[in-house]
Simulated assay, not measured.
Amino acid sequence: MHHPIILASSSQTRKDLMNRLLLDYQAIAPDINEQPQGETHADDLARRLAFEKAQAISQLHPDAIVIGSDQVAWREHAPDIFIGKPLTTENAIRQLQTNSNKIVYFSTALSVQQQSSGFERTVVEHYQVKFRDLSRAEIERYVALEQPLYCAGSFKCEGLGISLFEHMMGQDQTTLMGMPMIQLCRILRELKVLVP
């Protein structure tokens, strides 16, 4: 039996990642509160947000396989201080100045749920990047060109943001992009979704 697949997201990057799988799906933006609620580690915040995104849509579409994902960035030794989306050019420049020559970690959670069958699987994957020693001019030029105002950490690794790094480390680069696709494929196969 074919179950509909729903991506609980309005993110274009996550839609682009889903499109790689060549599956029929629809994207619906969940309406949840994304503010921290006392979490003291990035993993816990990312896990809760991904779970709540999937749950919000799954409750409305109980037969669908619903995919939620969320990402929280943090600097070395500070998993309790979350790096959010900059939203303004000034904040993006400030974030990148702070990230310069530092390691930034990304906790990316994935939650796949199907309410009618009681299926729920939520995982957290990790990725890290080491930023180069960035000059103010490089940072300003980058922000002006790519406008990464809605990206945690103020960069788009799938675009020009790759030029900001000294190196990247992790199991699956899509974790850094906002949705761990290797894990998603594994979970979809559990649900008998054919990928490929």
Rank of each mutant, 00 (worst) to 15 (best):
M1P: 05
I6C: 00
S9V: 01
S9A: 01
S10A: 07
S11G: 01
T13F: 02
T13R: 11
R14L: 01
K15R: 14
L21G: 00
A27S: 13
A29M: 11
P30S: 06
P36S: 04
E39V: 07
T40F: 01
R47H: 13
R47K: 14
R48K: 06
A50D: 03
F51N: 11
S58N: 06
Q59F: 12
L60C: 05
H61P: 03
G68D: 04
D70N: 11
Q71N: 09
V72H: 12
W74R: 13
H77S: 13
H77D: 14
I81W: 15
G84C: 11
K85W: 11
P86D: 11
L87Y: 15
T88G: 08
E90V: 14
N91F: 06
A92Y: 10
A92P: 10
T98V: 14
S100I: 09
N101W: 10
K102A: 11
I103R: 14
L110E: 04
S111G: 07
S111E: 08
V112F: 06
Q113W: 05
Q113L: 13
E120V: 12
V123Y: 06
H126W: 05
V129W: 01
F131W: 10
D133P: 02
L134E: 04
S135E: 05
S135R: 13
A137H: 13
E138M: 13
E140V: 11
R141C: 08
Y142I: 06
V143N: 00
E146L: 03
E146T: 02
Q147F: 02
P148H: 01
F155D: 01
G161D: 05
G161W: 08
E166Q: 15
E166S: 15
M168D: 07
G170A: 09
Q171K: 15
Q173K: 15
G178R: 10
P180V: 12
C185Q: 12
C185I: 10
R186V: 08
I187P: 03
K192R: 07
V195T: 05
